[in-house]
Design a binder for these strands. Structure first.
Lengths: 223, 223
DNA sequence: GAGGCTAATGTCAGCCACTGACAATTGACA
DNA sequence: TGTCAATTGTCAGTGGCTGACATTAGCCTC
């Protein structure tokens, strides 16, 4: 980040200023959102703190919601690119499973480049507990699902529009991921390790949960 | 609807007027939404057609989005109450499966009491294809999931906060339901029978889709 | 069936998210 | 240094939504 790397042109002053403004808007917004709440924070408050006009804010972010997902967007990218690197011998479900876990393993550093990890985690909880943001979050997840389904289909040499299994498998998998995020948000272990552990645990339960009868196996403890 | 039934007090003029206003707002709104699009329809247009003030609209519906889900809300109720009537001997997944199918079997009549079925179906497609509405739809579904998970837990004599299987099973199931709705919306069979058939077909694929390897079984045709 | 009570509705002013149009500023680059 | 283009600011306006207060209209009693 400090030494200009060969191959990529060093960004000029203009580009650096833009990046700085964008990062400042994200940091200030998340700080305000997590302290006083999303709804109680106005765009005017954010731009006043960063000293830009409201119009500038809306040129960087299409909406007030969008800024709340800026970091989240990056983390999702980690998962998708991890999936792209899984060995093709792996079955679809194992590939998905290993990709999420690997993404959580590397998320910490990636996040810290933009905002403090702790701020990211608080923001994640805020998204889960703010109706307007939760709705957007779920739609974004649905869009990501489509991307993932196509990757899975490719791995298996299938066409997503011919064979429903890729979309179905991904939908079931994502459903479990969503519950994981939800339960993590309600729990008390506010750490990346916590969410990783919960992910692993919940995925292990998917098979048994779909069995014809549950009356055999033992349960598990609370999140 | 015409003869006052004994046991229930006949609703007075005030109550009937309210019901009429509410129904008119729903019908006009769905009509406008489906013909000119959700975003391009203003609340002012709706209230002008029904001849009430904007303030009245917002006393019936908390937001412009809410009116788009009025009928949908009722259909979801059919599913939940069907689930409540499944025999307790049935395993969780079978109970879920039979409840959706039964709900689709009876949805037609229930819908027709409020709006033409064809308008409901067009509205459903509009929800799926309008980002702002899709987001709300997904959040509402997530809320319904929680309700359903609790019902499943009760059936099995479990506590949702102790055993993760109810939430996980419901999440996987709902994921498939969501994909079904999505695929139905993109397809060409715009009928209640069509969505019922697709539901059945996709649920049959869930087991195989979660198998360690797919290279054995045959695929299926497009939606 | 006149009058009081209260639920429903209308009116008005105002906040906030967001947008288009146009002017002012400021890096980039010859 | 001057020109070009990208970035930002200003301003006016739209649409969703809300609180406060006035008005209307069904309901119920005497």
């Amino acid at each position: 980040m400090s030494v200009p790397s060969p191959g990529t042109t060093a960004p000029g002053l203009r580009e650096r200023k833009k990046q700085r403004t964008r990062d400042a808007l994200i940091r200030v917004a998340l700080e305000l959102f997590t302290t006083q709440g999303y709804e109680r924070t106005t765009v005017d408050e954010i731009v006043e703190a960063v000293e830009v006009s409201q119009r500038t804010f809306f040129r960087y972010f299409g909406s007030k919601e969008e800024v709340a997902f800026a970091v989240q967007h990056m983390v999702e990218g980690l998962f998708v690119s991890a999936l792209g690197r899984r060995p093709s011998a792996e079955g679809p479900f194992d590939a998905l499973r290993h990709s999420v876990l690997s993404a959580w393993d590397h998320a910490g550093e990636a996040i810290a480049d933009v905002v403090p990890v702790e701020l990211y985690l608080r923001n994640f909880q805020m998204i889960e507990s703010t109706p307007a943001l939760l709705a957007i979050h779920l739609r974004r997840s649905a869009e990501t699902e489509e991307t993932i389904a196509r990757i899975i289909a490719d791995r298996e040499g299938l066409d997503v529009d011919e064979d429903p299994r890729p979309r179905i498998a991904v939908a079931a998998f994502s459903g479990v991921m969503r519950v994981t995020g939800q339960m993590w948000g309600r729990g008390t272990d506010q750490s990346l390790e916590g969410i990783r552990a919960l992910t692993e645990r919940y995925l292990d339960h998917l098979g048994p949960a779909l069995a014809p009868h549950w009356r055999t196996g033992a349960a598990d403890d609370a999140p």
